[in-house]
Amino acid sequence: HNLTITQGKLFFHYNPKLCLSEIHKMEEVSGTKGRQERNDIALKTNGDQASCENELLKFSYIRTSFDKILLRWEPYWPPDFRDLLGFMLFYKEAPYQNVTEFDGQDACGSNSWTVVDIDPPLRSNDPKSQNHPGWLMRGLKPWTQYAIFVKTLVTFSDERRTYGAKSDIIYVQTDATNPSVPLDPISVSNSSSQIILKWKPPSDPNGNITHYLVFWERQAEDSELFELDYCLKGLKLPSRTWSPPFESEDSQKHNQSEYEDSAGECCSCPKTDSQILKELEESSFRKTFEDYLHNVVFVPRKTSSGTGAEDPRPSRKRRSLGDVGNVTVAVPTVAAFPNTSSTSVPTSPEEHRPFEKVVNKESLVISGLRHFTGYRIELQACNQDTPEERCSVAAYVSARTMPEAKADDIVGPVTHEIFENNVVHLMWQEPKEPNGLIVLYEVSYRRYGDEELHLCVSRKHFALERGCRLRGLSPGNYSVRIRATSLAGNGSWTEPTYFYVTDYLDVPSNIA
């Protein structure tokens, strides 16, 4: 807008934040220059609390790290170098490059900038070799853009010569660093050979998330399962459950009422301010606690030095998902009996873990797994792929695949051998790939016309006998059925096997 004052003059007093240069501009645009008398524009009460600059400061050096910015700028000295009290560095987070010096300023003089007072450097006698002032900004957020400017702080001049310097606002972004852990990993099994893994992005990506790394490792069953005799009275049979499938998407929606109208769909109840505040506090606490764990609990591995020492970490090797089922080394339970199943799973520490690289999504279907087997899954978020990966501390989750139908069934015939004193040795093959492992066998036998009897055969007993022995049988026709019990439950009964026990007292003698 054009402003013209045809008559009258300007009068400025007691404006401590208004620089004289701005008042002189007002004289020019209003056409009143030359009308004012000496005392109409006070030299001592206008701009006496402001830094009124008329020179431009330029930054000469900028260096960044993930949490620091090192700045240096060209030296500046007023005509009387004693008038320079120091520099004021202003900075704040700036997602967009549209910041002005006066953003967030209120009537009390406060604003949204963080201000650092910096002492002037030592003055050199040689004007050509003056030290460049600077400042190291610490405690910054990774991968965050900051708006920065600097200006001088000078003393009051009796001659009211307006001098000083100020830089333009520059924008500097800190470097990326390792992201925080992925949030809320959930693993479920939808079949006997697959596990579905879902997660949420890290709360602090500290860069642009480029991919996720998912490692999985087959877990050995508890050692007590191999040692305890679950045929003993009072000892509860062990059981394991597989990871249940995901709930429906509708039930997972946030901010939804727990109660549904019987007449149909209901609208979600909005969260109160107290609920939102509580969630923010919980989120802040979780982030602080995660940072504490990362800094205190997890110790970084030592990389190899120039002395030739090897990095103890196993090298990563990509495998196809079809090879995942046989990740671990199978060892027989008892070496003397080769027909026992290889369900003991000690994992070799030198073995390469299978892994998958996930790009542009937060889910993965891990296939080719062994049925009813526990897996430990390790999830890392990465925001750099080359020249070397920059990934987060791992988040861990466990899951067990679903049982395989008929995996616990005894394959092959049940054979028998009759000894003296009416002892019958029953023999059968253990299931080759049971659900988890076989903890015991149930032997059901009966003599024709009598009630059915049951015998429990422990895992250890089966390994020693290759089956079991029935003792003290009365003469007669017998039928026997056997079924295995694994961590997933009972298998199917075998087809009945028949044998006849004679009275050993009636056996004919070869003595003449």
Score class of each variant (00 low, 15 high):
S342Q: 15
E281W: 02
V439I: 09
Q275N: 06
Q380P: 00
K253P: 03
R390E: 03
L379S: 01
M402T: 06
P238Y: 07
E465Q: 15
L228G: 14
G264P: 04
P403E: 06
Q252V: 10
S458D: 04
K432R: 05
H416S: 13
T307I: 03
V214K: 00
L237F: 07
C269H: 05
G449W: 05
N490K: 04
K460T: 10
S223P: 15
V324Q: 12
V359Q: 11
F499R: 01
I276F: 09
E227K: 08
F462Q: 09
V443N: 00
K236S: 12
V393L: 04
G412H: 04
N360Y: 07
K287Q: 10
T307V: 07
H294L: 07
Y504C: 03
R319T: 05
L453E: 03
V414E: 01
P332R: 05
S474A: 09
L379V: 07
S367M: 03
N339F: 11
R218K: 10
H461I: 13
N422P: 02
Y292S: 08
T272K: 02
G449P: 09
T494W: 01
Q384F: 09
N206Q: 02
V365P: 10
Q219T: 11
F285L: 11
Y445R: 03
G476Q: 00
F372Q: 04
S305W: 05
R240A: 02
S223F: 01
R319G: 15
D385L: 07
D204W: 15
F246C: 08
G322R: 07
E404L: 03
S342L: 15
E227M: 13
V214A: 06
N360S: 09
F419T: 15
A463P: 04
E281F: 14
T241K: 09
T307M: 13
N295K: 12
K271M: 11
D385Y: 07
N206D: 02
V439P: 07
K317D: 07
N383S: 04
S392K: 02
A263K: 02
K278H: 01
E389R: 14
G449C: 05
K236W: 08
S268F: 02
P475L: 05
T340L: 09
H416K: 05
K287Y: 09
K278T: 14
K357W: 02
F372C: 12
R466L: 08
E433T: 08
S305N: 13
T307D: 15
F337G: 14
E452R: 06
E258D: 10
G207Q: 01
E420K: 15
L440D: 05
R446L: 14
I418K: 06
A335P: 10
Q219L: 13
D311M: 13
D323V: 07
V214N: 01
N421P: 14
W493L: 04
R471S: 04
F355Y: 09
S479M: 03
Y504A: 08
E417M: 04
E350R: 15
R240K: 15
V296R: 05
G368H: 03
E442N: 05
R400W: 09
V439E: 07
Y448G: 00
S474I: 10
G472E: 09
S203A: 14
P270T: 06
S223L: 09
E452C: 12
F372R: 05
T340E: 14
V331P: 15
L213F: 03
F246Y: 12
M402G: 04
C456F: 02
D408W: 00
E433K: 13
S257H: 04
E260S: 06
K432F: 09
S284L: 09
A463D: 13
S367T: 07
N360C: 15
L487D: 09
E442W: 11
D311Q: 07
E279R: 12
E351P: 10
K406M: 11
G449N: 06
E378S: 07
R318F: 14
G472Q: 03
Y396C: 06
G476H: 00
D250K: 10
P245M: 02
N490M: 05
F246E: 12
E217S: 08
S251Y: 07
E389C: 07
D250F: 11
L487K: 04
C269W: 08
E290V: 06
E388Y: 15
G412D: 11
T307E: 14
N490A: 04
H425A: 14
E217V: 05
